[in-house]
Design a protein around this nucleic acid. Structure first.
Lengths: 127, 127
DNA sequence: TATTTACCTTCATATCTGTGAAGGTATGTT
DNA sequence: AACATACCTTCACAGATATGAAGGTAAATA
């Protein structure tokens, strides 16, 4: 439980020290945070977002059809799929010369659904 | 409904044209995808992720306490908050010389909860 | 008023990321 | 075997991003 003590920090009496310690204790650890950030980062690109929503709706699609649906180049799709694949967000299988992708995670599906509601409703969270 | 026709595309007979059209029709549009990507992008950084989880657990925290909990510099926190603020992920209020932040979106809260389950369970989505 | 505290905002920069060009691989067809 | 199709990978680079240094506000305190 190492906390920054060497550098700039507001006066110790001013911060709610006990709460800070409590939150720091139960906070998601560095590795987990890195994994989460990495996952969000992959969703943080318009092309990849559209691809994922396309898969969410279609179930399965080959690269070629993804490119058509999302209206982009196959190269771009290919690169996107490599990233998403290595993060286990999607999985693929071969069917003849086509390689068919689908979402490989129920959580991601929920995440996409939930997120769409978020932007749909705009900023009416709870005010 | 403009679809790439000018460039590289797999043979028309090979793709499931009707399904492609149907999915393209109901697909999240470009602007919405951009908004979603922008939001995910903001979550795609370890420091910001930790800050958000800290707020999720603590409810409210001043910049100074956030820096202590997340174990980083105030400058870094400040920069992060600016981004998150402008995207309405967090809101702030002033209390004396402290500026206190909290999550400003129920959807984001759910998103964070859900995502944590995701990485916790690893890859047991639905196989 | 002068000072301190807590936070914010430029600015410069090293690093990372998305993108397309070009070429490679694997499967099916002739 | 030769060729075509569908997809992948490497490479180079313009543009975006995170980061720290340095300095600027705004509120409390002396």
């Amino acid at each position: 439980m190492k906390v920054n003590t060497d550098v700039e920090r507001c006066a110790e009496r001013r911060v709610d020290a006990s709460r800070v310690a409590a939150v720091a204790e139960s906070l998601v650890d560095v590795d987990e945070a890195a994994a989460l950030a990495e996952m969000f980062r992959l969703l943080g690109d318009p092309t990849r977002v559209r691809i994922l929503y396309a898969l969410l709706e279609a179930g399965e699609l080959c690269v070629c059809d993804i490119a058509a649906v999302v209206d982009t180049s196959e190269t771009k799709v290919s690169q996107a799929m490599r990233l998403l694949r290595s993060a286990a967000v999607v999985r693929n299988r071969r069917d003849g010369r086509n390689i068919i992708y689908r979402l490989d995670d129920a959580h991601v599906r929920l995440l996409l659904d939930l997120s769409r509601e978020h932007v749909a409703h705009g900023e009416d969270g709870e005010r």
